[in-house]
Structures are given as C-alpha cells and as structure tokens.
C-alpha cells in the first residue's frame, strides 16, 4: 500500500515540472497560484487517503440536504 506514495509523488512532481513551471516562467500569476494551491491541496488529500485517514465524504451532507428538501426517508 505504501508504494502508492512514491508513485503519486512522482506523478505530481512530473506535473509540477512540466505543467506548472512553464506558467511561472511565462509569469501567468493567476494560473500559477490557482494551480499551486489546488495541486498542493490534492497532494495532501492523496497522502491522507493512502494513509487511511477517514475523510468526510461530500456525498453525506448532500444526501442529507436532498432528503431534507424532498422529505425523503432514511
């Protein structure tokens, strides 16, 4: 299971080098910051998922909301 972490890291690293770095060079700051924030966030979540952290699923609140609005049971 732990082998996923290096695999993921390599994939993320490749994207950072080949996809993110050109944005920095071209000085597209908006794209660059958006990219950086999102990809670091994804990376953290990936690691947490691999380490078996129980992350809350967005499906649960949505389900509750939908059942509340439509008055469903369960």
């Amino acid at each position: 299971m732990m082998i996923i972490i290096p695999i993921c890291s390599i994939i993320f690293l490749l994207f950072i080098i080949f996809d993110l770095a050109p944005r920095f060079i071209e000085k597209q700051w908006k794209v660059f910051w958006f990219y950086t924030v999102l990809i670091s966030f994804s990376f953290v979540i990936h690691i947490l998922v691999v380490l078996d952290f129980k992350l809350p699923s967005p499906a649960v609140p949505i389900k509750r909301l939908v059942s509340y609005i439509f008055g469903l049971q369960g």
Binding site: F15, F34, Y35, S42, P58
Partner: peptide, 19 residues
Amino acid sequence: QIVAPIGFLMMNLACIVYS
C-alpha cells in the same frame, strides 16, 4: 492550463466519495 489540478482534485473526490 488548469485541467491538471482540477483533475487531481477529481481523483481525490472519487477516492473519498463512498466508503
């Protein structure tokens, strides 16, 4: 240019969406 981070986030969501 921004497909990649959104795509990664999508994979994350796919991983955690159901147990």
